[in-house]
Structures are given as structure tokens and as C-alpha cells.
Design a protein around this nucleic acid. Structure first.
Lengths: 182, 182
DNA sequence: TGTACATCAGTGAACGCGCGTTCACTGATGTAC
DNA sequence: TGTACATCAGTGAACGCGCGTTCACTGATGTAC
């Protein structure tokens, strides 16, 4: 059942995109190769025509997640905060920022995956520094990543919303004070 | 090979403590029941004399982790920041705060575990609010949790240290400004 | 206080299941002439 | 441009492994008399 080179290339790209979303939604270890391939209407066997193993897919999926990420494309610090710390972002992890979604998976991942993730952290920190120059970009980045991660982890709508709201207000005020400019 | 009631109770407590540490270090799903029992010098079969299943252990281990946690016992906001955002804490997840260690596992955990975790988040937020009244305790909590989680995830000593240092400085200054008092 | 029996903490082997990976096979695509 | 052959994307079954859980069994502890 050979396919044309173009079709094969499309299969590969689709696998990376599907994996990137599934991994963000449920974690890398919780998603099987079968499930990723099933998303493309294919069986797991063909996977190994495209990737050395699951680890290689995870590394590419990680890079892809940062490329899709809204954080790197944000126009202003205020817009970033509003969107990042929203309930929509909290409830759509599959299409959201990989930082809150994958951070705790990273400690247990092989080096290739961790390196891809680390590049994404550096790029995100640089983008935040651009949007809010003069401020403490690493503290801001850590603050919003932690807030989203906690808001997702907690089983209490009230508390979850309070975490997002509290962090949004705090960092908006910081921007207003000019210590972290927009 | 029956044991006395006291010995049995000790076994149970040891299992919870061991699990709490192993889970914080490597994540709940990455640690098997066998491994927890092996820490006590026992085999996995006996586990089910004490717990309904792994889920029940995870819920208790989670509560135990918060009970051991330095965050709830901190004396002052400054002392908390200094210890929490240290390289020692980063490198000793097994004995550290469960928030950065378990937050991303939570999304995939059964409700009983998530509830135990949520109680811990509430208690932690309350403690931070006590230590830094008038400030935005949820933003502070999210900020330090996110910083530690990122510092652990990143494969780059330099960047990891910068995340801790940057966040420590930022929040110390916030305390100094009195917007988050000590 | 001693004896007979019931209980039950822990053992070790087994079971079932899911998952990553391999492999013989198929048949359409690509290539050489 | 057409034909013959080689290549290789994808299939589907199988393998090996780890892990959660079960279970018959052991022998010390607990209890009833």
C-alpha cells in the first residue's frame, strides 16, 4: 500500500501535529503510538517508517507545540496575559502553551525531548522579555505558567477561577506600574 | 507470616511515607506498587492488606506530602522564598513541596487523588496569605510553584539557576515594597 | 495460665492488559532501460 | 512512451515487558474457653 512521497510527508507532519496536541492534553506517557496513528486513520505499525521511536516523535511534537503556541506570537504583554490566563486557555490544553502542559513530564523524559523543551523555554522567556522589557521576564513567565498549571490541577471551579483571576490582576498591575512595561 | 497490629500499622504508615517521596520524585504513574513495597523490604502482594488499590495510596501519599511540606511550616515570607526557590529544593523533589512535583500529574488522576491535592492547594494558599497578608497570595503561590517546576524541567544549569534567581529577586522586592508584606 | 482454634500480615507465583516495537506481507509508486 | 523491476508506506499480527491486581498458602498473633 505504498503512498506517494507527498502523501508520506503529509502523514509525517500530521503525526507530529496530532501528537503535539494529544501530548499537551493528556501527557506524553499517557498517549500511545497507536492512538496518535489512529488520529490519522492509520495503524501503529506504519509509524516506524517515519520515526526512530516514540522519543523522536516526542521531541518533534514538543518543538511543534512551541511553534503553534500563542505565547510566541503575542502582540502585547496585556494581550498575552488576558489570553494566557483565561478559562478558555485552561480548558483547551491541547491547543495551548506547552509549558504548563508538559513541564512536569520533562523530568522523566529522555534528553532529546528535554532539549527541545528547553529551547522552547528560552524562546518563550525571550519573547516575554521583548513584550515587557525592563521587567523580570523569568518571574513573569514562571508566574503565568504556574497559575495555569495550578488552575488545571485543582478540582474546584471556584478556586481554579480565583487562581487565574488573582494572577491576571497581579501581573496587569505590575505592567501598569511600569516595572514590567507593555 | 502474620505481624502484630503495631507492626502492621507501622508498615502502612511507612508505605504512605515511601510513596509520598517516590511519587514526588518521579511522578505517581512512573512508580509501581512493587517499588513502594520494596522500599519497606516487602513484596507487592501484601500491599492490598492495607489499601484498596494504588489510587487510595496516591490520595494518602498526596495528603502526607503536604503535611511534610515546608511551605505549610514556614515562619516568614522571606524564609519561605529563600528556601522554596533554592537549588537544594530544586534538587530534592522527593522531600520538597508537592505542588511543583505533582501538579501536572493531577489532570490525569482519579477524583479522590485530585481532591486530596486540592485541599493541599487551599492550605498552601491560606498559609501564604498569612505570611504575606494584603498581597496577592495566589499570584505569589503560582509564581513560586511555576518557577520551581520550570527550573526542574529545563536541561540547562544556567537557565535553571536564572529562573530561581530571577523569581527570588522579584518576589523579595515585592515583599520589600509592602505590596506583599512579611 | 495454658491450650486450641481463628485470624490475618506478608509471600510468591500467576493473570490480564496495555504499550512500544518488530516483521512478513501487500500493492501502489518510483525508476531504469 | 511503454515495460519490468525495485522500492517502500502502510497493514495486522505477534512478541516482550512492566504493572496493577488476585489468590492459595504460611505461620505468627490474637482470642475464646
Amino acid at each position: 500500500v505504498r503512498r506517494s512521497r507527498e502523501e508520506a510527508a503529509r502523514t509525517r507532519r500530521s503525526a507530529v501535529k496530532a501528537a503535539s496536541r494529544l501530548f499537551r492534553q493528556r501527557g506524553i506517557e499517557a498517549v500511545g503510538v497507536d492512538e496518535v496513528m489512529a488520529k490519522l486513520g492509520m495503524t501503529a505499525g506504519g509509524f516506524y517508517r517515519h520515526f526512530l521511536n516514540k522519543e523522536a516523535l516526542a521531541a518533534e511534537a514538543c518543538a511543534e507545540a512551541f511553534a503553534e503556541s500563542g505565547l510566541l506570537q503575542a502582540r502585547s504583554a496585556r494581550a498575552l496575559l488576558r489570553r494566557y490566563l483565561s478559562e478558555e486557555h485552561r480548558d483547551a490544553a491541547a491547543f495551548g502553551c506547552p509549558l504548563p502542559a508538559l513541564t512536569s513530564d520533562m523530568a522523566r523524559q529522555p534528553d532529546a525531548v528535554r532539549r527541545a523543551f528547553t529551547r522552547g523555554v528560552r524562546a518563550s522567556a525571550a519573547r516575554v522579555a521583548q513584550l515587557a522589557p525592563g521587567g523580570n521576564s523569568l518571574a513573569l513567565l514562571a508566574g503565568i505558567v504556574g497559575a495555569l498549571a495550578l488552575a488545571r490541577a485543582v478540582k474546584d471551579q471556584e478556586l481554579s477561577a480565583a487562581i487565574l483571576r488573582g494572577s491576571r490582576r497581579f501581573w496587569m498591575k505590575e505592567l501598569g506600574r511600569g516595572r514590567v512595561r507593555l
